[in-house]
């Protein structure tokens, strides 16, 4: 057993679109340690959701094309495992998912309880792999014992995510609970199967700030308490700062910088990340945006995809993508001209 739980190497994914082939991920690297909360930060359209989906193995089959690379989870390459095994042993059991939109993720015509019990029917941690393949098809009376155990487990989990009155909530329909509660239910469902990794795709974007703070606190507490690793995608550097141990920044389908949280906010080394941090609203600093627009992924710039907007760009940036190299402890940046000066708003 290695210290790394997940290791994505040189992953390239492209999508067939009407306008041509969109090269959404360009040889992306990502590492998640056991029990670590890793933030995947980037602006919209940078490929963070695609990366999350490729780890889960739920890319759209008819348009997505995985060009190269490997996704090693717990010493097995998920890209080489056959889909049925993946479904039976990994997806939903060892890797679970918290979606962005808690409104759209429940079926409106079934009670919350029946939907959570449906999950337990297929993915309960009590099942071994062989049972998991068929247990969902068995009539309910077949496993009454297990049903009771599962229900008990669900009630305990709802209490753990601080939902008042778990019994009453199970009997409710999704529209009867608030957005914050729905997101708590999603976290509960993600944790119920005792996964090793949770992929949380912008789980707090749709929530208000005070509710967001509650949810972040809860997620961090539960994940560190249970030793579950989290891949937390977000477009908000502030949120990432609050919850993550380690941060990976993506831009237009390339990862730009990987670093532990403190090192990253202290000394962002990629020109893009340093500009991004400076474009956050602050009291002392003026407004520094990044000139230009995010490039099209059908015809992305060659080399480093940030070069058209980069103030340090030279010829080599336009022809060849920089290889990752260390600039600090565990701090990897993919740039020929890493920034060295300290940004204005730095961690004391």
């Amino acid at each position: 057993m290695t210290a790394e739980l997940l290791r994505v190497r040189d992953l390239a994914v492209s999508f067939a679109t009407e306008g041509g082939t969109a090269k959404v991920l360009d040889r992306v690297n990502l590492t998640i340690g056991r029990g670590q909360i890793v933030g995947l930060v980037g602006e919209s359209g940078c490929g963070k959701t695609t990366l999350a989906r490729s780890i889960l193995g739920v890319l759209p089959r008819n348009s997505a094309q995985i060009g190269s690379g490997s996704i090693v989870f717990d010493d097995a390459d998920l890209l080489k495992v056959d889909p049925a095994t993946l479904e039976r042993t990994v997806r939903g059991r060892q890797i679970s998912f918290i979606p962005q939109d808690p409104y759209g993720s429940f079926n409106p015509v079934f009670t919350i309880g029946s939907q959570i019990m449906e999950l337990m029917k297929w993915k309960s941690p009590e099942l071994n792999d062989r049972q998991a393949a068929r247990s969902g098809w068995l009539p309910r009376f077949h496993g009454r014992q297990r049903y009771r155990a599962d229900r008990q487990r669900v009630l305990e989990m709802l209490a753990a995510v601080q939902l008042p009155n778990p019994d009453a909530i199970l009997a409710k329909y999704p529209h009867e609970v608030s957005g914050g509660q729905r997101q708590r239910l999603m976290i509960a469902m993600a944790l119920l199967t005792e996964p090793k990794l949770i992929i949380a795709d912008e789980p707090t974007t749709a929530l208000d700030v005070t509710i967001q703070a509650q949810i972040l606190k809860l997620l961090r507490q539960l994940a560190t308490g249970r030793g579950v690793a989290v891949l937390f995608t977000t477009h908000d550097l502030g949120t990432a700062y609050e919850i993550c141990d380690r941060i990976t920044v993506m831009y237009a389908g390339q990862e730009m910088e990987e670093a532990p949280s403190e090192g990253f906010f202290n000394r962002p080394s990629h020109p893009y990340t340093s500009r991004l941090l400076r474009s956050l609203p602050s009291n002392d600093g003026g407004l520094v945006g990044i000139p230009g627009e995010i490039p099209s992924l059908v015809n992305p710039p060659i080399g480093c995809r940030f070069h058209p907007r980069c103030e340090y760009a030279t010829e080599i940036c336009c022809s060849q993508r920089p290889e990752p190299h260390d600039v600090g402890v565990d701090h990897v940046v993919r740039c020929y001209h890493p920034v060295t000066e300290k940004p204005k708003q730095a961690v004391q």
């Binding site: 967001q212 703070a213 507490q221 908000d236 502030g238 919850i243 956050l280 961690v347």
Partner: peptide, 21 residues
Amino acid sequence: LAAIPDIGGRRITDTFLLEGE
């Protein structure tokens, strides 16, 4: 104000107190 992420400050996951909705 306590709920705004403050880069460089204390983490709200340690300090946030407001409960309920």
